[in-house]
């Protein structure tokens, strides 16, 4: 028994070591650092108490970034879930041309995030953008606050779509056929069959997809960095992008450590709420 647990620990060691090095030690350092005053070059200048937190919450730009992140999440989460679910549901039964649609849907997986963001930037650039030509619109997408946020949401969906779609599709196709056949014998069909039988059958995967999308929405920074750079007029600055600006561009360690700590606490809160709900189900 003892031999076995030692063996198990050895197998886990590389992962544990990496987690320790890149997650837990930095987290601990950030947590302690958030109560200290540290210079740009890493010298500890003194104990700050709650000053770092107070200063953060007094910053209008930080409060705005929280608002922008919330707005993004509220737009992104339902849309992303609905669209991926719809795509997977429509293609769940293999037919003649489903393979073609599958290829198209999975293609975005082959592109890197920055490449896609740059393509979006070109598609939506200026008032005579490609997208405006196609749809006959006259919106300066990336020069106005709300349209810029919408473009960011579309990009977010585009980035997450392929993977979420794959997960849902495989779950749909992996559902035990006998349950569905039994329901059909009982006379269920169409929407009833879908909402009462098929959807509950994939609910675990669906909640995983929603959970991942929630994580992506709260943590969104890289697409902002490439597509809008927080603009126009700082209207798409999300929490993590604000964090990047303060911590890395300005070398403001006070803001960096406090946001890191707050985000971890927030994630723990969400995770505990979700795992409690799951236990209830």
């Amino acid at each position: 028994m003892k031999e076995n647990s030692l063996k198990a620990f050895l197998y886990l060691a590389p992962a544990l070591l990496l987690a320790l090095l890149f997650c837990f030690i930095p987290l601990g350092k950030a947590f302690i650092g958030s109560f200290l005053t540290i210079s740009q070059q890493g010298r500890i200048l003194g104990f700050a108490g709650l000053d770092n937190y107070i200063s953060l919450f007094r910053d209008q730009a930080f409060l705005s970034s929280v608002k922008h992140t919330l707005l993004f999440t509220v737009l992104f989460l339902p849309l992303n879930t609905a669209i991926t679910l719809l795509a997977a549901a429509l293609l769940k039964t293999k037919r003649r041309f489903t393979a073609a649609a599958e290829y198209i849907f999975i293609t975005p997986l082959a592109f890197s995030l920055s490449a896609l963001a740059l393509i979006f930037k070109e598609i939506f650039r200026g008032r005579v953008s490609i997208i405006n030509r196609i749809f006959g619109l006259s919106i300066a997408w990336l020069d106005e606050s709300i349209p810029a946020m919408i473009v960011l949401v579309i990009l977010g969906i585009f980035l997450d779509f392929a993977f979420d779609y794959l997960l849902l599709l495989s779950q749909f196709r992996g559902t035990d056929k006998s349950i569905i056949e039994a329901a059909e014998i009982d006379g269920a069909s169409g929407l009833t069959l879908f909402f009462r039988i098929e959807l509950p059958a994939i609910q675990n995967m669906l909640s995983a997809v929603i959970f991942m999308a929630l994580k992506d929405a709260i943590m969104i920074s890289a697409p902002v960095m490439v597509l809008t750079e927080g603009g126009p007029f700082r209207s798409t600055e999300t929490i993590m992008y604000y964090y990047y600006l303060e911590a890395f561009r300005s070398g403001n360690r006070a803001a960096g450590t406090t946001i890191a700590v707050l985000m971890v606490l927030f994630s723990i809160l969400i995770m505990s709420i979700i795992s409690r709900r799951r236990r209830d189900v």
Binding site: F233, S235, L245, S250
Partner: peptide, 16 residues
């Protein structure tokens, strides 16, 4: 200035 990048965009926001 410190935080020059953020201040740059803040000026634009206020002018807008």
């Amino acid at each position: 200035l410190p935080s020059a990048y953020q201040i740059y965009y803040s000026f634009q926001s206020e002018i807008r």
